[in-house]
Amino acid sequence: MPVTELKFYQTGTFTIGNRLLGEEDRAGQSAANRANSLNCGHRACQGCGEALGARYAIDAAIRASKGQLVVANATGCLEVFSTPYPESSWQIAWMHSLFGNAAAVATGIAAAMKVKGRNDVRVLAQGGDGGTTDIGFACLSGMFERNDDVLYVCYDNEGYMNTGVQRSSATPPAARTATTPAMGVEPGNRFGQGKSIPLIAMAHQIPFVATASVANLRDLEDKIERATLMRGARYVHVHVPCPLGWGSEPSDTIKVARLAVETGLFPLFEAEFGALSGHTAIRRRVPVEDYLRLQKRFAHLFRPVVDVARIAHIQAIADHNIERFDLLN
């Protein structure tokens, strides 16, 4: 007699762990002995997506590299909240040099490891979107182009948050920042600007490029772990909401990130040697309005009147992503 096939556990794979799952089926973050590479006592704001994303990513890299990891960090929130004298939150070999040179510093570290025969050590560079897409872009591109043995992780919170929420080339259209105020005929950030570093990274034909989100931990860990074990230049772009800069509730950080994925505004995909090799399908598609409404940086799209045209424009961007990356399948 036909019985519906047993497909899912109680919580499927969407929770971080589950007492019913074997250790190997849980997210790395569920482990009681996880690295906590970014320790308690850091000074990130409440509900900081970047703090969360960084711990997720670095813990995953630590796991994959069996602890043999060195990290170079660009200037930015992550650096400032983690290492103000006299306390560091990092429990790993970590270095901060400048805002725009994390990729190059990592290249140097990787070179040193190479000449010293430390093939076991993996080198990771990390920075925010400002340090990656703008000021650090030349070094990043150089590192890519040379195929240096570095995994670069960008925590994209779509603006210069450390300096007080200014526009970066990762700021989305319509978003209000301190330098794109919500006034005038085109309030907020202009449409038709900005760049996609993941796509630019792909153009360098590097071994691995991926996007990830703090809302999808398993996907993020999988990508970081695989990327950590590859050789050559690798890039993972992690979407990390900033409650302060986005004007979202600290408790909504993961929800907002999830909606960015589910609307199609932040597509999750990966590429090898310049060619798309996979994507993470949208599970429950929602209109962009659901995402925008949670964030004060988009408040001008809804008050005093609903800006139907601009919301439709943003929806069109989401729809384009969905089509381009085949996100519904």
Binding site: Q10, T11, T15, G17, N18, S30, N39, H42, C48, L52
Partner: peptide, 15 residues
């Protein structure tokens, strides 16, 4: 609570 580890995982402060 059914011990899904979500609270443990999503805390940005390891708290």
């Amino acid at each position: 609570c059914f011990e899904c580890d979500n609270c443990y995982g999503v805390c940005p402060d390891n708290a």
